[in-house]
Amino acid sequence: MLSAHQWLAEAAQLLDLPPEAARELTRELLDLTRKVAHNRSRPAAPLTAFLVGLASNDLSQARAHIATLSARLS
């Protein structure tokens, strides 16, 4: 079985993303999904991460979207 980091690196490669894309926002996304799961809905947590990715053109924009959603949950 692969570790999370190994899987994310493999997934990034398969999606033609640079490897740092898989590592750069890991902590921020996990923090966001934890907040969503505890303050809104468990099933909404991974879907929120999906929406962040869908709405983002690059890592800095993803970071801004994570900050916006995290602020709403605080």
Rank of each mutant, 00 (worst) to 15 (best):
A71Q: 10
L51N: 04
N39A: 03
R23W: 08
R34Y: 10
V36P: 00
R72C: 09
P46A: 02
L14G: 07
L73A: 03
P46L: 11
S3R: 07
S60C: 07
I66A: 02
A11E: 11
D16Q: 15
Q6L: 12
Q13S: 11
E20L: 08
R27K: 09
A22P: 12
A64C: 06
S41H: 12
G53M: 00
E24P: 13
A67M: 05
L51T: 08
Q13M: 04
R40V: 15
L29T: 03
S70Q: 02
S70P: 04
S3P: 09
A21D: 09
T26E: 11
L15T: 07
S70M: 01
L29W: 00
D58H: 04
A11S: 08
A71N: 10
S41Q: 04
R34T: 10
E28L: 01
D16V: 10
A64K: 10
S41F: 04
N39S: 04
L32C: 00
Q13E: 10
L47C: 07
E28Y: 02
A44K: 04
N57G: 15
A71S: 05
A22L: 11
A62K: 00
P18F: 07
F50Y: 09
A64E: 15
R27T: 13
H65P: 00
L8D: 13
Q61M: 13
F50G: 03
T33S: 02
L15R: 02
A12Y: 01
L2H: 14
E10A: 15
Q6F: 08
I66N: 00
Q6K: 13
A55W: 04
A67V: 06
A22S: 14
T68A: 08
V52L: 00
V52I: 02
D58N: 09
S3E: 08
P18E: 12
L69M: 00
R40A: 09
S56Y: 00
H5G: 12
L25K: 03
Q6I: 10
R34G: 13
E10N: 06
S56R: 01
E10F: 09
V52Q: 00
Q6E: 15
A44I: 08
S41P: 12
F50T: 10
S70Y: 01
A37H: 06
L25Y: 06
L17K: 09
L30R: 06
L73V: 04
S3C: 06
P43C: 13
R40Q: 11
L47Y: 03
A22Q: 11
W7P: 11
Q6R: 07
S74C: 05
L59M: 00
A9E: 12
R42C: 13
T48E: 03
P19S: 05
A49S: 06
P18V: 11
R42D: 14
A21P: 04
L2P: 13
S3V: 01
S74G: 10
S60N: 10
K35M: 07
N57R: 15
L69Q: 05
Q13R: 06
T68K: 15
I66F: 05
H5N: 09
R72D: 01
F50H: 14
Q61F: 01
N57V: 14
A22W: 10
L30T: 06
M1H: 11
E20D: 11
R42V: 14
A45Y: 03
A37Q: 05
R40G: 02
A37Y: 11
S41W: 08
A12T: 11
